[in-house]
C-alpha cells in the first residue's frame, strides 16, 4: 500500500483503539484519582462486560436487540458486582494501597476462574448490530490536478465509526457528570481531601463504593463495545488492564482530559509507528516512546505532581 493511504489506515485503526482505551482508562482513572488505590481487577470488569455481552445477546437471539440489551445490562451487573466487592473487602481493609493490590489480585483470580468455569476457554464472537465495509478515498495529485482514488484495502467499518462516536459521547457525559453536577462535586471534594470532605458531611464510604462501581461499569461498557470487533475471551482483561493503567498515569492522575489525550497518544503512536517498522519492533518502540514521555514528564501530561 502507498504511504499516504497506509498512514491514514493506521491512524483510523489507532483511533478505534484509542476510543476503547479512553473509555476503559477513564474508569480506572476515576478509581485511582478519587480513591487512590490501584484496582488490579479492573481488566476483569472489562472481560466481564464482553462475556456478559455474549451471554445477553445470545440469550436474546443475537441481533440489534440483544446488543442494545447488553449495552444496558452488562455495565449495571459489573457495577453492582464492584460495589459488592468494595463493601465486603476494600472498605474493610481501609483502602490501604498495598492491601488493596493483594485483595484485587485475589478478585482477579476469582473473576477469571469464574468466567472460565461458566463461559469456557473459547473466544466467542458477538455479531455487530451493523457492520458495513466503507471503502475510503484518497486524494492523488495526477497530471490533471488532484483527483480521488480508492486505494486497495483502505476502508473502515460502520461499526468501528460507531465505537468512536459512542466512546466520545460517554466520555462527554462523564465529564459533564464530574464538572456540572452535585455528584461530581462530591467526588472531586473526596478526591482533593478525604478527611475534610468527611468533616463536611460527605459520606465518603458511599462515594467510594459508588466510584468503584462506576469505574467497573465503564470498563464493562468498553468490553461490550469491543466484543463485536474482538470477541470475548476469559483472559482478555490482562493486557487491557496494563494499557489502561499506562494511559491513566501518562494522562496525569485524576485528569479526565489527560486520560483522553493519553489514550489518543498511545492508540495513535501504536498505529503510526507500525507503518514504519516491523510489527514487534514497532510495539517495542511505541512502548519505549510512551515510557520516555513519563520519564521526562513524571507528573503525566496533564497532572500536577503525583504525590
Amino acid at each position: 500500500m502507498e504511504f499516504g493511504p497506509h498512514l491514514m489506515l493506521a491512524v483510523l485503526e489507532g483511533a478505534v483503539t484509542a476510543a476503547v482505551l479512553a473509555l476503559m482508562a477513564s474508569g480506572l482513572s476515576l478509581v485511582f484519582g478519587v480513591m487512590r488505590v490501584v484496582n488490579v481487577a479492573h481488566g476483569q470488569f472489562f472481560m466481564l462486560g464482553a462475556v456478559l455481552a455474549w451471554a445477553v445477546s445470545s440469550a436474546l437471539g443475537g441481533g440489534a436487540v440483544g446488543f442494545v440489551a447488553a449495552l444496558l445490562l452488562a455495565p449495571v451487573i459489573a457495577g453492582a458486582l464492584a460495589v459488592a466487592a468494595d463493601l465486603t473487602v476494600l472498605k474493610r481493609v481501609g483502602y490501604d494501597p498495598e492491601r488493596t493490590i493483594v485483595a484485587t489480585i485475589g478478585l482477579l483470580y476469582i473473576l477469571q476462574q469464574a468466567a472460565l468455569m461458566t463461559y469456557g476457554p473459547e473466544a466467542r464472537p458477538v455479531a455487530p448490530p451493523f457492520n458495513d465495509r466503507l471503502a475510503l478515498p484518497w486524494i492523488e495529485f495526477g497530471p490533471e490536478g488532484p483527483g480521488l482514488i480508492w486505494p486497495w484495502g483502505l476502508s473502515i467499518t460502520s461499526y468501528k465509526l460507531f465505537v468512536m462516536g459512542a466512546a466520545a459521547a460517554v466520555l462527554a457525559g462523564l465529564w459533564a457528570l464530574m464538572t456540572r453536577t452535585g455528584i461530581g462535586l462530591v467526588m472531586r471534594a473526596t478526591q482533593l481531601d478525604r478527611e475534610t470532605a468527611q468533616a463536611f458531611g460527605i459520606p465518603v464510604e458511599r462515594v467510594y463504593a459508588g466510584v468503584f462501581g462506576l469505574g467497573a461499569a465503564l470498563a464493562a461498557l468498553a468490553g461490550v463495545l469491543i466484543v463485536p470487533i474482538q470477541q470475548a475471551h476469559y483472559l482478555m482483561g490482562g493486557d487491557a488492564l496494563l494499557l489502561s493503567f499506562i494511559v491513566v498515569i501518562i494522562g496525569g492522575l485524576g485528569s479526565l482530559g489527560g486520560t483522553v489525550i493519553a489514550a489518543l497518544l498511545i492508540g495513535l503512536s501504536d498505529g503510526i509507528v507500525s507503518v514504519f517498522f516491523s510489527p514487534t519492533l514497532a510495539k517495542i518502540l511505541a512502548t519505549l516512546l510512551v515510557a520516555l514521555v513519563l520519564v521526562f514528564r513524571p507528573e503525566g501530561l496533564m497532572g500536577k505532581a503525583a504525590r
Binding site: 500500500m1 493511504p5 497506509h6 489506515l9 493506521a10 485503526e13 489507532g14 478505534v16 483503539t17 484495502g153 470487533i229 474482538q230 482478555m236 493486557d239 498505529g271 507500525s274 507503518v275 510489527p279
Partner: peptide, 8 residues
C-alpha cells in the same frame, strides 16, 4: 488485538 494496520 487489532490487525488491519499490518494488512497494509
Amino acid at each position: 488485538t487489532s490487525f488491519t494496520k499490518y494488512f497494509a
